[in-house]
Amino acid sequence: MDLEETTVENEDNQTDLASNEDSEDLNIDQGLWYIIHCYSGLEERVRKNLEQRIDTMDVRHKVYQVVVPTEEVVEIKDGRRTPKQERLLPGYVMVRMIIDDESWFVVRNTPGVTGFISADEEGEKRVRPLPLTDAEVSGIFRRMEASQPRAKIGFVKGQNVKITDGPFQEFIGVVEEVLTEKGKVRVLVSFFGRETPVELDFLQAERLDA
């Protein structure tokens, strides 16, 4: 009898665990993504504040995920490559949630949050949070998960540069075109009395003016 009771109890526990796991799996696809506004530079602090409020006020079943979208970039300036994480949406934080009065109150009244990105409710004198479309969400996460960091360069057309490497080292030229996808810049160099276009790696030139 004891053995049977133990077996039944174990089966019940396994059922509960399976139910919890199923619930967690379902949470992955539940809710919609919304954008909340905060002061630029405080995005990470707002994320931590909101995560704490979600747990303290026990609304994890309605507010599932809080994300500060960032992407990896390589800043190329004056012959140097500097890898860094850069915010995709300065002043904004993404929240995946089911909107109702309770969840709205928790998010909206989090320290540092100044409001939702909203749209006017037709026929009503109030605003409603506006969810992101699937395409918008996919685009943001695609940039966050990119395998190659995005190059962030300081060159613009018409800018004076000094060539720092290669056969034209020490020559002064003018940027004719920035070839971002190739990681190069085309520079016009005065050579034997005529302007000659030269393609350079971003690291082979440095700016002479801001």
Score class of each variant (00 low, 15 high):
residue 10 N to V: 13
residue 14 Q to M: 14
residue 15 T to N: 12
residue 15 T to Q: 10
residue 16 D to T: 15
residue 17 L to G: 00
residue 17 L to K: 06
residue 18 A to T: 07
residue 19 S to M: 07
residue 20 N to W: 04
residue 23 S to Y: 13
residue 27 N to I: 06
residue 27 N to H: 12
residue 30 Q to E: 14
residue 34 Y to A: 04
residue 36 I to L: 07
residue 38 C to N: 05
residue 45 R to P: 01
residue 59 V to Y: 06
residue 61 H to F: 08
residue 62 K to E: 00
residue 63 V to G: 01
residue 63 V to L: 01
residue 64 Y to I: 02
residue 67 V to S: 02
residue 79 G to F: 08
residue 80 R to N: 14
residue 82 T to I: 09
residue 85 Q to S: 14
residue 86 E to I: 06
residue 86 E to Q: 15
residue 88 L to A: 10
residue 94 M to L: 15
residue 105 F to K: 10
residue 113 V to K: 07
residue 114 T to Q: 10
residue 115 G to F: 03
residue 116 F to T: 11
residue 117 I to D: 01
residue 117 I to A: 11
residue 120 D to E: 12
residue 122 E to R: 13
residue 125 K to S: 09
residue 129 P to T: 02
residue 130 L to D: 08
residue 130 L to P: 01
residue 137 V to Q: 05
residue 138 S to A: 14
residue 141 F to D: 04
residue 143 R to K: 14
residue 149 P to N: 06
residue 153 I to Q: 14
residue 153 I to H: 15
residue 157 K to C: 12
residue 157 K to V: 15
residue 164 T to V: 13
residue 167 P to W: 11
residue 172 I to P: 03
residue 175 V to F: 06
residue 180 T to F: 05
residue 180 T to H: 13
residue 180 T to Y: 07
residue 181 E to M: 08
residue 182 K to F: 06
residue 187 V to Q: 05
residue 194 R to N: 11
residue 196 T to H: 11
residue 196 T to S: 10
residue 197 P to H: 08
residue 204 Q to M: 11
residue 206 E to D: 03
